[in-house]
């Protein structure tokens, strides 16, 4: 860092995550629970045990992602015969029909984004923990992309919910949700909580303590 930047932590201040008010720490204990003078909410200077929480939610998301891909996410009944499809085979159907843009959107939202989020958060936790080749500017941008992408994975769940409701023509054709939809939703929620648990300020803290 060419410019010497003072951080709030070094100045014995803590930023309220909700109302962005700087609070003064009493007697310099950086792990204490602080009550914000402006919004009266409780918070910590850094999210406590941020890395452990991120890692734990991340592992949970990874575990839930396995049944999410193995079980069928949607079962299409036509004339009484059920045709189950998993996330991947659903994408395959779009490719067969030549709907490449839609196939690409679903593939990105349901496969690439969850995996990228899980792998990316593992990487961030590892880098913060060890401090190896830590580039806070690059990594905090990366973290923002991950955070932004999170909710878009819900796409497949919403699609199934809509199809179940709309395609309801009795015996001729109907759509039912498969067991994978529960696991997939859990994956999405776990990765969102994992991303929320990560405190990007730790990247800069670690970098500064390394220098």
């Amino acid at each position: 860092m060419s410019l010497s930047i003072n951080t709030a932590k070094e100045s014995n201040l803590a930023l309220c995550p909700k109302c962005h008010k700087l609070n003064q720490l009493r007697d310099g204990d950086s792990h204490q629970k602080i009550q914000c003078v402006r919004c009266h909410g409780f918070f910590y200077q850094r999210k406590p045990h941020s890395l452990q929480y991120t890692l734990a939610w991340n592992i949970a998301a990874l575990i839930a992602f396995i049944p999410a891909n193995l079980y069928p996410i949607m079962i299409i009944y036509s004339l009484g015969i059920g045709d189950p499809s998993t996330i991947l085979s659903g994408i395959g159907q779009f490719v067969d029909h030549g709907l490449y843009p839609i196939a690409a959107i679903i593939f990105t939202a349901s496969i690439i984004v969850p995996l990228l989020k899980i792998a990316g958060l593992f990487l961030l936790v590892y880098r913060v923990h060890t401090g190896v080749r830590l580039r806070p500017d690059k990594h905090s941008k990366f973290y923002h992309i991950l955070e932004f992408l999170g909710p878009w994975s819900m796409l497949d769940v919403f699609v199934v919910a809509l199809l179940v409701a709309v395609v309801e023509l009795g015996f001729i054709t109907s759509v039912a949700a498969g067991p994978a939809i529960n696991y997939f939703t859990l994956t999405v929620i776990f990765t969102m909580i994992a991303a929320n648990s990560f405190d990007p300020r730790l990247l800069w803290d670690k970098k500064q303590s390394n220098e």
Binding site: I102, W152, L162
Partner: peptide, 26 residues
Amino acid sequence: RAFHHLDNWAMLNVFMLGIVVSMYKL
């Protein structure tokens, strides 16, 4: 302050994309 807790969890835009995708499917 309570309002801020909901910041990440509104997914209307994702639902909109869901509508578009399911239209293509149908």
